[in-house]
């Protein structure tokens, strides 16, 4: 990798100041995406701002009906948190299948969401659970946060501090992993809260998206049969050697049905 200047700020304010003062700086949380990217020399930041020293950003709290997860909370901690397992078990389940155990020991929810890799798992949970993303400067709704391929609503120098997930009545995440990378080739998160159902799909397209037709059908009848004939168009989906767009479109329905079945269990 190219060399860079390394910073380990002790406060969010210092981190933000550093990022704002150096236009080519990059923040690093767990580093599970950034370091491999740097190793491949696909990025050349002048400065790396390591958020690892911001202990106040790590931790899980229950606030009313919400699970609030600090941005620097590791996937392993979400996966094994008794609170998360009790309140939103699907979220713990999702976290327990991100990457591998060693990645889960380092990778963070804030990093994953800020990076918005099209094959990442967390964006599906954020959107399906209608979470709120809190930053040093404000709040973003789930639907407004993910903008496109590796793009989010975060401004330059804006850092995620926490993500707040409202409890759902029923929820489940089903992932079809890429056989090589084990990233989500298709991941579907289904959540039902009252009469409101949200279906969020990751991996299949350039960015997480919702499937309105499935949401409507599931709002009428929260059963896998209700969506078995719903096919999403393949046009805008990803296509690569592991999965054609048509295959991904097909898998969206299969994984959505399985998620509904799992949520009903």
């Amino acid at each position: 990798m190219y060399d860079f200047a390394y910073h380990r700020p002790k406060s969010i304010a210092d981190a933000v100041n550093l990022l704002k003062s150096k236009p080519e700086a990059r923040p690093m949380s767990g580093g599970m995406t950034l370091i491999p990217t740097l190793k491949q020399r696909l990025a050349k930041p002048s400065d790396v701002v390591d958020l690892g020293g911001l202990k106040e950003l790590a931790g899980i709290k229950i606030e009313g009906n919400n699970v609030v997860i600090g941005a620097m909370t590791r996937h392993a901690d979400v996966a094994t948190s008794a609170d998360v397992k009790r309140v939103i078990p699907a979220l713990a389940g999702l976290a327990s299948h991100i990457g591998d155990p060693q990645v889960r020991n380092r990778g963070t929810i804030g990093g994953s969401i800020a990076n918005n890799d099209p094959a990442a798992d967390y964006p599906a949970a954020v959107v399906a659970l209608n979470a709120t993303v809190t930053t040093n400067s404000g709040k973003h709704t789930a639907d407004s946060f993910f903008k496109g391929l590796f793009e989010t609503a975060l401004a330059d120098g804006e850092l995620i501090t926490s993500v707040s997930f409202p409890k759902a009545d029923k929820a489940a995440y089903m992932k079809f992993p890429n056989p090589a990378s084990r990233y989500a080739m298709v991941g579907v998160f289904v959540a039902k809260t009252g009469n409101n159902v949200r279906v969020a799909v990751t991996g299949a397209g350039p960015c997480v998206f919702r499937v309105k037709e499935m949401e409507d059908a599931l709002a009428r009848s929260f059963t896998s049969d209700a969506i078995k004939d719903i096919k999403i168009p393949a046009d805008a989906l990803n296509s690569d050697i592991h999965g054609s767009a048509e295959y991904r479109a097909h898998l969206v329905t299969v994984m959505a049905r399985r998620a509904v079945d799992a949520a009903n269990k």
Binding site: Y6, G31, I35, D50, Q102, N105
Partner: peptide, 18 residues
């Protein structure tokens, strides 16, 4: 893979300074 503070991690994906 090594252990850092008791947890297994990939030592190729962490800077020495971290």
């Amino acid at each position: 893979v090594v252990h850092v503070d008791g947890k297994s991690i990939k030592s190729c994906t962490i800077l020495a300074v971290q």
